[in-house]
Nucleic acid binder design. Sequence first.
DNA 1: GACGATACGGAACCGTGGCTCCGGTTGTCA
DNA 2: TGACAACCGGAGCCACGGTTCCGTATCGTC
Lengths: 191, 191
Amino acid sequence: MNVDATDHSERPLRADARRNRERILAAARTVFARQGGDAQIDDVARAAGVGVGTVYRHFPHKDALIGELVSQKFRGFADNAERALEVEDPWEAFAGLLRTNAEFCAGDVGVQQALARGPAAWQYAAAELDRLRDTTRRLIERAQKAGVMRADFAVEDIPMLMCGLSSTMGVPGYDWRRHLEIMISGLRAAP
Amino acid sequence: MNVDATDHSERPLRADARRNRERILAAARTVFARQGGDAQIDDVARAAGVGVGTVYRHFPHKDALIGELVSQKFRGFADNAERALEVEDPWEAFAGLLRTNAEFCAGDVGVQQALARGPAAWQYAAAELDRLRDTTRRLIERAQKAGVMRADFAVEDIPMLMCGLSSTMGVPGYDWRRHLEIMISGLRAAP
DNA sequence: GACGATACGGAACCGTGGCTCCGGTTGTCA
DNA sequence: TGACAACCGGAGCCACGGTTCCGTATCGTC
């Protein structure tokens, strides 16, 4: 399966094509954020002021479109993680990252839901995911070495944790931040 | 919408009908457990050795079938909660219930996923849900009064917590029990 | 054992939504 | 400015899956 919809090997996109591509992505963000992962391509196209055909010209199928959004999102996560490495306090660096990324998630629950639905979209973000994982691992090791985090916690737990969290973000009127704080408290080293 | 598919007001089901109803439910449990919420009615029918028409005779639509499964599941949750009230130690009573019900969930992730998907199925379990909520509230108050649970935790957090947890149960090879223990630690009263 | 009520089976219907196709338009380069 | 390649739009195609319909089989009662 072609994982990269952008196809950098070709000559640069024509001006109108690039413009439309951006419009489509922006529209997709909005539409998925509002309607969740089962929003229709037609809706995205309409919101972008573009025909369905144009959407499919840029993204061979729905997953590719969602994949691109997911990828962008993970790029953000990974960037945040790298910034967190510069925070002095090992615990604050880690907990802060969780909070920041959670907040970053909450912006568009739609993408999160879409992501939770099918694993197909994940592969598009593989590279960013690796970067995020590596950085986070370092944050965790640092905190554990400092003795402020429970020793049995591992990077693999993060996706689960965020997955759980994000599934609660969709519930209207629920304060997911409390849920997050509960989990964060659970991560502190037992005395 | 008709919430009760069993329709107790009518005369008892004919012997073959009752038999088929049970078969369908059993098959549905298996099929949904294996394939998740988007398993098809046709699959359920085939697994039950029955025609689709028969499934629809007993359950007016897919949601009603899922609803019945969900309802049964919640009856189990609520029963467990009532048993937990008899445990002496307030903390163990509560934490134990979480563990028990989580384990009970893990049995058929399919139903959990189906449940997480659409809110339509929830209404079928409304009565059991109320019973579960009331009992759990008492467990929480007891633990908080004893000073062993953080004071800002509320019954409303439980569904979120379980929702998050169940969304990780579907991931093959992941130890969701660790996730649960992390959350449980997060609930203990801060010293 | 006969008869009416009840239940069964599964082919077919139909709405939905992803995706394609092609005639028309627009950007780019000489 | 002309010509061609790249791109656009959206009607329509098609597969999928929930639901219906009705001729046939089975149950329970007299």
